[in-house]
């Protein structure tokens, strides 16, 4: 079996269509929407188009779970016992088990909301972060950055379920959120252990994480202001091993990502 599987070789059937996330962010309509005064962008039931925004996000979560399963599975397989501790591979196997359950839960939730598998295009940027040749970079890029985004997204969806009175959505998102906190903590713990005597390597890994965090902020999709549909889940990130300073830094990274995307799109917010 091939090691380090490139994103273009991921197995997908005819229901799935790929899209480049950069094309979506650069869509000139996004800039036009940003210029409008339509109130808070937070995902709330009383916001315009709330149902379809939630449906599309749920489909995105499903695709993210598929890719998280593929990423954790690859990390279990791609490295020898000499390259990474066997216990780390066991943790990745455990994570794969969790992600496969999340895929099944996400399919059911999408059905509950009236969404078909493949109804929306798939971006593979999540899996791409899981293709790093160094396992340490995967721990920061995937477990701390990607799974950290999952914490923010699941918390947002859980609140959406709470606020809309949807007990199915709220409960399922809460169960998955609990797993994601564990996955991020795994990344935090292994990062500390693997770089205990190598601060330079730890800093390189954290720099990779910052790059991925910026990418995953998707030009303002995530942040801490009313302009951001997905809100940073500070409390859950603390539970997952993030320090206050790290969360503050992430908040700055998300603001930078939004400013850069708006500048690139020529958004005028005056």
């Amino acid at each position: 079996m091939k090691k380090i599987l490139p994103p273009e070789e991921l197995a997908r059937d005819a229901r799935f269509v790929r899209v480049n996330i950069q094309d979506t962010i650069a869509d000139p309509r996004q800039a036009k929407v940003s210029e409008r005064n339509t109130g808070s962008a937070k995902l709330e039931p009383d916001r315009p188009a709330a149902a379809d925004r939630a449906r599309q996000l749920m489909h995105g979560i499903f695709m993210g779970e598929v890719q998280a399963l593929e990423g954790a599975g690859r990390t279990t397989f791609d490295f020898t016992d000499e390259e990474v501790p066997f216990q780390l591979k066991l943790d990745m196997a455990r994570q794969s088990w969790d992600e496969s359950r999340h895929c099944e839960i996400s399919v059911k939730l999408a059905e509950h909301m009236g969404t078909e598998i493949g109804e929306f295009a798939e971006a593979t940027f999540l899996y791409e972060a899981a293709c790093a040749p160094d396992a340490l970079l995967r721990l920061t890029g995937v477990n701390r950055a990607l799974e950290g985004l999952a914490i923010d997204v699941f918390n947002t969806m859980k609140l959406f379920g709470d606020h809309s009175g949807d007990p199915v959505l709220a409960a399922c998102e809460d169960w998955m959120l609990a797993d994601e906190v564990t996955h991020v903590k795994m990344g935090s713990d292994w990062l500390r252990r693997l770089t205990e005597n190598d601060p330079e390597r730890r800093e390189l890994a954290l720099e990779f994480q910052r790059t991925v965090d910026k990418l995953f902020s998707l030009g303002g999709f995530r942040g801490e202001t009313d302009d951001n549909p997905i809100q940073l889940a500070r409390r859950f990130r603390e539970l997952a091993g993030f320090s206050t300073e790290e969360i503050d830094e992430l908040s700055e990274v998300t603001a930078e990502a939004q400013a850069e995307a708006e500048a690139a799109a020529g958004v005028n917010k005056s």
Partner: peptide, 29 residues
Amino acid sequence: PLPLTGSTADVVDGNAELWFSGANFENGK
């Protein structure tokens, strides 16, 4: 764009006036 859907259907002076977000006609794939 998707997912910002929305529509209205009103009657003004006996004529039908429909408004749609472009997202209502957009292919999700």
